[in-house]
Amino acid sequence: MNLLFAAFAFIFDPANLLGERGILPRLVDHLLYTGLGLAVAFVIGIPLGLLIGHTGKGRNFVIAVTSSFRAIPTFGLLLFIILFTGLGLWPLVVVLAILAVPPLLAGAYSGLESVNRDTVDAARAIGMTEWQILFSVEIPLALPLILGGVRSATLQVIATATIAGYVGLTGLGRFLIEGLALHNYTIALAGAILVAALALAADGLLALVQKLVVPRGVSRGLTRSRSIRPKKPTGFRVMAMAPTKEG
């Protein structure tokens, strides 16, 4: 318990806030890695998921990607890549992106899959083009699940960006790595608390965004309206949609 007090004292000591090894610059770095990794993953995962969800082709591809990526130890993959590329920002960003693609893909795909086909057919029947169907029918109705994927991807990237501290970069994980290396468990614990707090704050924020952005008719209608079919959990759906944990 004394260690816990010491860790909080470290966090709230203004001397540790700024400066090269301060909390604030490391927080900024952590957010930078997270943002870059997510941005790259977003550009790949979301359009692909929407494509598969809209056409209905390639659902086996989704489950193959999500379940096989879950098995790869990210930590090992990052170290392996760095041994070839050398230290730097981009290897980390690539690994973080690899990590974030499956949840984004699964979220976008299963979001569209959950939209009732009758609703899509009705939209087509009244003369909407495929793009209109995608952007004004399918995506709004699928938004809860798409954002669920974004939320899960963000959390994983924040958690895994902790390892950046081990490969010559900083981020909040640096406190953890330094603390462990120097057997200074106060600093390690302070780093752990900071990373956990960041993850929880980001999750809370995204939960709020999820509430605000989703059209009211959708969030309320999830149980009542027929635009979204309530899905029974099947083996396939569980394997594709279960939360992943990599870092």
Binding site: A159, T162, A192, A196, L200, D203, P243, G247
Partner: peptide, 22 residues
């Protein structure tokens, strides 16, 4: 909430909660 906590953070925090060695 517990699932949200990054693994390395939890590995390092648990000793002070459980009273174990790191």
């Amino acid at each position: 909430i517990l699932f949200t906590i990054p693994s390395l953070a939890l590995f390092v925090t648990l000793p002070s909660v459980l009273g174990t060695k790191i």
